[in-house]
């Protein structure tokens, strides 16, 4: 089957990739990625405000993968990763782009897309209120997520969440989340 999870990245021509990972997302891997990228941000002399935003968004994106990825299809190339995901961090002219990808079961696509659309049509004030509402009213789910990750990312970056679902088969789609952290926000 010709399905390449990395093909999405070839459509993104601008910028300089500073980190790429594909495989199992576990706690140790998250530590490693955070360490590596933080080191590069410091080495690149990025302003602490931008550094912190990138770090925060990276934590939430990786932990979103950790808590929410659905299992890989039976005929996918990587059958050993329990929680398969991909991540790329790209340095662009005015900030950093963080792209993640993971499998989502067909049944979960609509719900996830609805959530993103709701965030994307909200103003900054509405997102702040939504964040506070979820913080105060929703318990941590059985998967360990708080349901706040995407809202927090949108709030901290001030940008719309770009995304794409690429159909793998009838049961699974591959979900890309593309976040831009601007140095001017």
């Amino acid at each position: 089957m010709s399905f390449n999870v990395e093909s999405y990245f070839s459509d993104i021509s601008s910028g300089n990739p500073i980190h790429f990972y594909k495989g199992n997302i576990d706690s140790d891997l998250i530590n490693k990625v955070l360490d590596t990228v933080e080191g590069k941000l410091i080495k690149g002399n990025e302003h602490s405000k931008l550094r912190k935003k990138v770090y925060n968004v990276l934590v939430e994106s990786l932990q979103n993968l950790y808590h929410h990825v659905d299992k890989v299809p039976d005929d996918f190339e990587d059958q050993t990763s329990d929680k398969f995901g991909i991540l790329e961090v790209i340095k662009e002219e005015n900030g950093y782009r963080i792209i993640t990808g993971n499998f989502v079961q067909a049944d979960n696509v609509e719900k996830l897309e609805e959530k993103i659309k709701r965030i994307n049509r909200s103003s900054h004030e509405e997102i702040t209120e939504l964040y506070k509402f979820i913080l105060n009213h929703q318990r941590i789910s059985s998967k360990g997520g708080g349901g706040l990750g995407l809202v927090d990312i949108a709030r901290k970056t001030g940008n719309r969440l770009e995304y794409q679902f690429k159909k793998y088969n009838e049961e699974s789609s591959f979900f890309y989340l593309n976040i831009f952290v601007s140095e001017n926000y």
Binding site: K52, Y55, N56, G146
Partner: peptide, 12 residues
């Protein structure tokens, strides 16, 4: 210095 959204509920 940093806290994630999962900690934010526990801090509450």
């Amino acid at each position: 210095e940093y806290f994630n959204t999962s900690s934010s509920k526990c801090i509450l």
